[in-house]
Structure formats: C-alpha cells, structure tokens
C-alpha cells in the first residue's frame, strides 16, 4: 500500500466517508426512505441529500482555500453544519 502514499489526514477522510456510507446503508435497511421535498428545489431521497451535501462541502472547501488563507477547520465546521442542514431540512 506504500505506493498509494497514505497520510493520516487522508486516511481519516476516507475512513469517515466509508463509515458514512456504511451507516447510510444500515439506516436505509432499517427504515427505507421515500422522496420528499424540503428547501432544495427538487424532491430528494436521503442518498441524494448526502451526495448534494458532500459535493457542496467540497466546493465550500475549494472556495475557502481559493479565497482565504485561514485554517481549514473553519471550512470543515461550515461544511458539517451545511451537511446537517441539507440532510435534515433539504
């Protein structure tokens, strides 16, 4: 695995993504979701909202890195809050 040039932050990042996917699968098996309409302009399933939340989080990080020199923890915090809002009310 050394050719993959792992670092601790990227290992944590992928572990969190994998854990989210496993939790979502278990959640889906226990209580299957139906499409619903929240503040997003389209009807979404739980998986759709996760995808939208993660993709927009990536863009939040890119904008943050491109426009400021401040620590990335703030962008991570904003993204976590945004992901929660999308999952809950999206």
């Amino acid at each position: 695995m050394s050719w993959m040039a792992w670092t601790l932050p990227t290992a944590v990042f992928f572990s969190v993504i994998a854990a989210i996917l496993v939790c979502m699968t278990v959640f889906e098996l226990r209580s299957p979701c139906v499409e619903r309409k929240g503040f997003l302009p389209i009807e979404t399933t739980r998986g759709d909202r996760l995808f939208i939340g993660l993709l927009t989080s990536a863009y939040i990080h890119l904008m943050y890195v491109g426009l400021t020199d401040m620590t990335l923890w703030i962008a991570l915090g904003i993204s976590c809050v945004w992901l929660f809002i999308v999952m809950r009310w999206g």
């Binding site: 993959m4 040039a5 670092t7 932050p9 990227t10 992928f14």
Partner: peptide, 9 residues
C-alpha cells in the same frame, strides 16, 4: 484515493 493522497503531499 491515490490522487487525493498525492494532492496533499
């Protein structure tokens, strides 16, 4: 995943 690892090093 390898590309992500490379992008921070």
């Amino acid at each position: 995943m390898t590309v992500v690892n490379y992008s921070v090093q």
